[in-house]
Design a protein around this nucleic acid. Structure first.
Lengths: 329, 329
DNA sequence: TTCGAGACTTGAAACGATTCAAGAAACTGC
DNA sequence: GCAGTTTCTTGAATCGTTTCAAGTCTCGAA
């Protein structure tokens, strides 16, 4: 089996090599001021040459520090492009740090299950959550138990916590700006699910845009951009046949935007001529098929990366100053 | 901070509760036959009531067992739908087991870096790799060091190891079958990158299909289905204008298929009338835009799930019997 | 010369689990 | 009644790390 390296070096190994005591070596490696400069150098050199890497289990057992960041999976993210980009981003933000990234499965019954598990077993130094709700029990729980975390999206509970968010208010506003510039007058919002905080922000921006650009809002009822694609498509077709149909759409999700376009096309309407659609995060693939969707980019990869950075800062005791960030649109 | 649970229970806690020794408790929990039946029950009950969960760091330090499965990220997977589904699948396969899933970042310079890291630091009980090559140094290295792993895709090094693979030979063959049934006669393969094993399988199936269905093969040169989408699109347009252009395409990747269709459309050709395209894994989104792409599904989620199961079996010392699986197409 | 104060270094005790040799108790057979 | 098993339980050692109290030196001041 292991032929190249007889055994992984430990502090004891280094102590033998250098002729020092184990605790000296330990402190030297962590730059304790109690250790003489020259000794520190000697130890570090030896560590380097021996290819020493601290045993995570040892550190974790002794200090409780896991060097693990956990990201909690959401069932709704399956299939969406969100998750892959997000994880790549987090992984990027963690590069060069000692943190490992573990992916925790969701629980279909109760989204608190993974959170409780993490807290109870102290299995991570920090947690990243997404799909944040205005009054989010996960946030409350993590705050209560003093477990560092960062959320993708904000809450409105009057509690301060680290987050990174896309400026969805501005997104909706800018979307209307673009539609208005295209001469559209009657606009509809196919926004985020009601239970997520960014639904509120999106609505705010939409309302403000309606006023500022003097547009008519067309209510879509209770559908949201995460509804099944074919239901969105059918809705669009039905809309298209209506007399006072909207001629502009703001959509929070590219898949929904595509379904919407398909539904309108089913009724014979042409994108860019009869109506316009603004969506977020148009991948090159969709851009190829529906080049006329107006897009305002949202970078999930950046979100993941920032969240990782923010979370690490929080773990290391940073004050709240830079721990709340809003992506400018 | 921690108000609800004063302290996490440990073996010592359980020992005090039951009035037994620590080692008795330890063995009882692991069903050692040396412990009396009645004692075992008593200990387990106490453990349950106290909400005992073994401390992972303790176990890991003592036994070397990490209870971690690592999946290695591939830079090429970014943006593709593959990764999200794959991870959801793995996560699913790990549900109910004590294994955690950690995602290891890739290294742009050298794909061996993460592998060596895992082996050197013994940071996982098992590894899942994808994008397997015929002669894959990762496979060799992991085998040499006796680290359990499972690969998504096969190798051709004459070495046995656990894998799960999609039957790409059959895929290409069936694709030609469908094209032939549509009356297509001149077909081209936009297959996987040359360096991946499944390129070989795909080619085999394609060649066999050409013979069996008496089709003419149209060579596409060195482009593959992971080439930049716009280059594929341009290629398609150029092809469309050629006199003896192919009228059927087998594509290994949905994004490439879409780009191909777009390029043909640019030249005025109509999918389903002037040519047909077979692709894998058509999401409902693409199906909505290009309903006429012929699809043969590939389930990445299942792949992840199976790989997790296979890997766990391998870790637990299963013989090679059921550790090599091929998804039937 | 002696004492105290730095300046370094180190042994021992944790952290929570498993394992092994050995102890205690009960039971066997003669 | 006693040696010899068998059955069950347990203390101690160990994994690799950090931390704390205590140790050794050296040096300067009195």
């Amino acid at each position: 089996m292991d032929n190249s390296l007889d055994k992984r070096p430990t502090l004891k190994t280094l102590a033998e090599i250098t002729g020092l005591g184990i605790s000296t070596v330990s402190q030297a490696l962590r730059d304790s001021p109690a250790i003489a400069e020259e000794t520190r150098k000697r130890v570090k050199l030896a560590a380097q040459q021996a290819g020493y890497r601290p045993n995570r289990a040892g550190v974790r057992l002794r200090t409780g520090k896991t060097n693990v960041i956990t990201v909690v999976l959401n069932p709704q993210d399956e299939g969406s492009g969100f998750f892959a980009d997000f994880v790549f981003g987090i992984s990027n933000g963690l590069a060069g740090t000692p943190y490992h990234l573990v992916v925790t499965p969701y629980s279909l019954e109760d989204p608190m299950v993974p959170i409780r598990y993490i807290v109870e077993t102290a299995s991570a130094d920090g947690v990243i959550i997404s799909r944040t709700q205005p009054n989010d029990p996960r946030v409350r729980f993590l705050l209560e138990h003093g477990v560092p975390f960062a959320s993708h999206g904000r809450t409105s509970m009057g509690l301060e916590h680290p987050y990174f968010d896309y400026d969805n208010e501005n997104y909706a506003y800018e979307a209307l700006h673009k539609l208005s510039a295209k001469g559209r007058t009657c606009v509809a919002l196919l926004g985020p699910p009601r239970d997520l905080t960014y639904n509120i922000h999106t609505n705010l921006g939409f309302e403000r845009g309606l006023r500022d650009f003097r547009l008519t809002g067309f209510p879509l009822g209770s559908v949201d951009a995460e509804a099944p694609l074919d239901s969105i498509r059918k809705l669009a077709t039905a809309l298209a046949l209506q007399k006072d149909r909207p001629d502009g759409f703001v959509v929070s999700n590219i898949a929904a935007a595509v379904a919407l376009c398909a539904g309108m096309a089913d009724a014979g309407l042409v994108l860019g001529r009869d109506f316009d659609v603004v969506s977020k995060h148009v991948t090159s693939l969709v851009g190829m098929l529906c080049p006329d969707i107006i897009s305002i980019p949202e970078n999930f990869r950046e979100a993941g990366c920032r969240l990782a950075e923010i979370l690490i800062a929080a773990i290391e005791g940073e004050t709240q100053s830079e721990l709340q960030q809003l992506a400018h649109v």
